[in-house]
Design a protein around this nucleic acid. Sequence first.
DNA 1: AGCATAGGCAAGTGAACGCTTGCCTATCAA
DNA 2: TTGATAGGCAAGCGTTCACTTGCCTATGCT
Lengths: 102, 102
Amino acid sequence: MDVADDLFKALADSTRRTILDELTQKSGQTLFEICSRLSMKHRLGISRQAISQHLAVLEAAGLVETRREGRYKFHDLNTAPLRQITDRWLAPDTSDQEESTP
Amino acid sequence: MDVADDLFKALADSTRRTILDELTQKSGQTLFEICSRLSMKHRLGISRQAISQHLAVLEAAGLVETRREGRYKFHDLNTAPLRQITDRWLAPDTSDQEESTP
DNA sequence: AGCATAGGCAAGTGAACGCTTGCCTATCAA
DNA sequence: TTGATAGGCAAGCGTTCACTTGCCTATGCT
């Protein structure tokens, strides 16, 4: 329905948020690299396909961008879509609020 | 699992985001006021109970605070939890990133 | 008191979601 | 060419989620 729907749906899962954390620490990781990090550092017993699906969701939301090089596919973080959240509810413009009279 | 889970789950639904929009325009609305606004302005054919459940989710996430006065219950917006998102991935500190060597 | 208004609780339903399993394609090294 | 590595596609399963329906409590007006 909403255009922002993909973004918020992508952020709704804790595994996907952890993936964003990992890409924040090191951008340009491959699928297998992300897999091993989630397994080692975060003790997440999760399959490769599950993570692949998570990455697809993050890519649909614009939070992750990919580039292919040979048999490797690198995943880069893009935090730009997150600005929507700030712009929507943390905008400094409070000039046209209605008065509170129940 | 995560403590931030409530926040992102709350934002994952488009109706709840619309409620936040409405509370941004006018804080301190009652349940019925929110109901009529969603119905009129946003053409959302949704029951009162559904909206009540949405407000409970938003309150659990800390995005909405409530105060009772007689038979009225007013709902106030609290955008403070949204700062978590900025702090987590939009933090200006990029000093301790790892180098990208696949 | 009697009735309308404002809100709450709980069970049930259909759809979406997260994850697994199994198999397939593509790239590179021996 | 064979084998290993990196990734993709799709069906199936159990859980969670959004929403409805029905009934109940509390406050206020006349």
